[in-house]
Lab assay of single mutants.
Amino acid sequence: MSIQHFRVALIPFFAAFCLPVFAHPETLVKVKDAEDQLGARVGYIELDLNSGKILESFRPEERFPMMSTFKVLLCGAVLSRVDAGQEQLGRRIHYSQNDLVEYSPVTEKHLTDGMTVRELCSAAITMSDNTAANLLLTTIGGPKELTAFLHNMGDHVTRLDRWEPELNEAIPNDERDTTMPAAMATTLRKLLTGELLTLASRQQLIDWMEADKVAGPLLRSALPAGWFIADKSGAGERGSRGIIAALGPDGKPSRIVVIYTTGSQATMDERNRQIAEIGASLIKHW
């Protein structure tokens, strides 16, 4: 067993022997301040990774656009098919120029040779490549099948209805392509620590998230040296922004954090800054 596999296998073990965790309302004060600064709703939840206990939450059962955070769930569904012998990570998928959609920095470079399922998941999570996500959605049967996968996990809230990039439209009061912070946090925890996926697939999923290259201005910008984070960000229309993450000190994750916002007129930089400040408060009061 590799060191990384050992780390993920012992996530519940280490967490069980940690000192009790206590909620700190100071972080919620910052979440509410972010709402004021952005002029928009902000949803927040913080779960203990081992027990699933909610440590703090704000608007945990209000719907927010998922945006690209759905790509972690998508690759979880792909990995479940791999575990069941219905898919192979090494299978190569070929596609054409007509398949390319807006923001496809990886797939646009491989029109000639195609990409493997493993490479597509890596591109979808680490670079948020939209064509990679659409190609992977095709392998599982489309958005409705991802929703069905989530329902089978016990998540009857999260739903995907459309493809990239239309799913980022974020129309107010439109339930399409949305989740709730509580539902997303619980589902992410199941994917990373539950028995739904094999140990190898859980490790692969967290490795992809740990290698995320496009979430630097968010929670990662607030992390002290030595902290662990595996995350996936999302951005959408109407001032929408979000991030889902597993993080913790001492090089291992111990909490799940989900943050979503929508309806702001603020710039992307300002949305990023507010999420980073929430992260800084979380870490300060850990």
Rank of each mutant, 00 (worst) to 15 (best):
H24N: 12
H24V: 09
P25C: 03
P25T: 09
T27L: 14
T27Q: 10
T27V: 14
L28K: 13
L28P: 05
K30Q: 06
K30D: 04
V31Q: 00
A34S: 09
D36W: 13
Q37N: 05
Q37H: 08
Q37T: 05
L38T: 06
G39S: 13
R41V: 13
R41A: 12
Y44Q: 00
Y44T: 02
Y44M: 07
I45M: 08
I45F: 15
E46T: 08
E46N: 08
L47W: 10
L47Y: 05
L49P: 11
L49C: 09
L49H: 10
N50F: 09
N50I: 10
S51I: 05
G52A: 13
I54H: 14
I54E: 10
L55V: 15
L55Q: 13
E56M: 04
S57V: 12
S57M: 05
S57G: 06
S57E: 07
S57T: 12
R59K: 11
P60R: 12
E61H: 14
E62N: 04
F64P: 00
F64T: 02
F64E: 00
P65M: 02
P65R: 02
M66C: 10
M67E: 15
M67T: 14
M67Q: 07
S68P: 00
T69Y: 00
T69H: 10
T69I: 08
F70C: 07
F70M: 14
K71Y: 00
K71F: 00
K71A: 00
V72A: 12
L73T: 06
L73I: 06
L73R: 01
L74D: 01
C75L: 09
G76L: 05
G76T: 09
G76Q: 02
A77W: 05
A77S: 08
V78E: 05
S80K: 03
S80G: 12
V82M: 11
V82E: 08
D83K: 10
D83L: 03
D83S: 09
A84Y: 12
A84S: 14
Q86P: 07
Q88W: 13
Q88T: 08
Q88L: 10
L89T: 09
L89I: 10
G90P: 05
R91C: 14
H94G: 05
H94V: 04
Y95Q: 02
S96R: 07
Q97L: 08
Q97D: 14
D99Q: 12
V101R: 07
V101E: 14
V101F: 06
V101A: 10
V101H: 04
Y103G: 08
Y103T: 14
S104G: 12
T107R: 01
T107K: 01
E108F: 15
E108T: 13
E108L: 14
K109D: 09
K109T: 13
T112M: 11
T112R: 12
D113F: 05
D113E: 04
G114K: 05
G114Y: 09
G114C: 11
T116V: 09
T116P: 12
V117T: 09
V117M: 04
E119V: 02
E119R: 13
E119S: 14
C121G: 05
C121K: 00
S122G: 11
A123Y: 11
A123I: 12
A123H: 05
A124H: 01
I125D: 01
I125N: 05
T126S: 04
M127A: 08
S128H: 01
D129I: 01
N130M: 01
T131K: 02
T131G: 07
A132N: 01
N134D: 08
L136K: 00
T138R: 14
T138E: 15
T139F: 09
T139E: 15
I140H: 08
I140Y: 05
G141R: 08
G142Y: 03
G142P: 02
P143T: 13
P143Y: 06
K144I: 13
K144F: 05
E145F: 08
E145N: 12
L146F: 05
L146I: 13
T147G: 06
F149Y: 12
H151N: 09
H151V: 04
N152E: 15
M153A: 04
G154Q: 10
D155E: 10
D155R: 00
D155Y: 01
H156K: 14
H156E: 08
H156C: 11
V157G: 13
T158E: 00
L160Q: 06
L160M: 11
D161C: 13
R162I: 00
W163G: 11
E164K: 01
E164P: 00
P165F: 09
P165C: 07
N168P: 01
N168Y: 02
E169Q: 09
A170T: 03
A170Y: 08
A170S: 06
I171E: 15
I171N: 15
P172H: 07
E175H: 13
R176I: 06
D177M: 01
D177G: 01
T178C: 05
T178F: 02
T178K: 02
M180I: 15
A182S: 11
A182K: 14
A182V: 11
M184L: 06
M184W: 00
A185C: 14
A185T: 04
T186L: 11
T187E: 06
L188S: 05
L188Q: 03
L188V: 04
R189S: 07
R189H: 13
K190C: 12
K190L: 13
L192P: 00
L192F: 15
T193N: 12
L196M: 10
L197C: 07
L197A: 09
L197T: 07
T198V: 06
T198E: 11
L199C: 12
L199A: 08
A200L: 12
S201F: 10
R202V: 12
R202Q: 14
R202M: 07
R202W: 06
R202P: 02
Q204N: 15
I206T: 08
W208G: 02
M209Y: 01
E210T: 07
E210L: 11
D212R: 12
D212V: 05
V214N: 13
V214I: 12
A215H: 15
G216T: 08
L218G: 05
L219Y: 03
L219I: 10
R220V: 10
R220Q: 05
L223P: 03
L223F: 04
P224R: 05
P224L: 06
A225C: 07
A225S: 13
A225L: 06
A225G: 08
G226H: 05
G226L: 04
W227V: 02
F228L: 13
I229Q: 02
A230I: 11
A230C: 12
K232I: 00
K232L: 01
K232A: 00
S233V: 02
G234L: 00
A235C: 14
A235E: 03
A235Q: 08
A235F: 02
A235N: 04
G236L: 02
G236I: 02
G236A: 10
G236E: 04
G236T: 09
R238Y: 15
G239T: 03
R241D: 02
R241K: 10
R241H: 11
G242A: 09
G242I: 00
I243V: 13
I243M: 14
I243F: 12
A246Y: 05
L247T: 08
D250N: 04
G251Q: 07
K252L: 15
P253Y: 10
P253I: 14
P253R: 07
S254T: 11
R255N: 02
R255M: 04
I256L: 08
V257P: 01
V258E: 00
V258L: 04
I259A: 09
Y260M: 07
Y260E: 00
T261E: 11
T261Y: 15
T262Q: 04
T262S: 06
G263E: 10
S264C: 12
S264I: 04
Q265H: 09
Q265F: 05
Q265V: 06
Q265T: 11
M268K: 14
M268T: 13
M268E: 10
E270Q: 03
R271H: 15
R271S: 08
R271A: 13
R271V: 10
R273D: 09
R273K: 07
Q274K: 09
Q274T: 07
I275N: 00
E277M: 10
I278Q: 00
A280P: 02
A280W: 14
A280G: 10
S281L: 05
S281V: 10
S281G: 11
L282M: 15
I283H: 14
I283P: 03
K284T: 08
H285Y: 04
